[in-house]
Amino acid sequence: MVEVTLWGALGQLAGGQSKVEVEAKDIRELFRKLAEQYPAFEPLIDRGIAVAIDGTIYRDTWSKELPQGAEIFLMPRLAGG
C-alpha cells in the first residue's frame, strides 16, 4: 500500500481528498487502480500525469516501481520549449 498525494485538480475529482492510499507496485498499476477507484481520473491519465517518486519526476516510465514508504506525488504532465 502506498500513499499518493494528489495535486489540486485531482483532489477535487477525488471528493476533496489530497491523499489516497493505493495497493500498487509500479506506476502502471497505480494508474489502473486510480482509474478503477476514481473514474473521473481517466481523462486526466489519458491526457498525461507525471509521478514524482521521492522528488524525481517520471512522465513516461510506467514500469517504475513504487518503493514502500516513498513519497508519491502526482503532478500535471508538463511540456517544455
Partner: peptide, 9 residues
C-alpha cells in the same frame, strides 16, 4: 518540500 508539491532531491 517544493512549492509545486514533491520533496526535492
Amino acid at each position: 518540500r517544493s512549492s509545486y508539491g514533491p520533496v526535492y532531491g
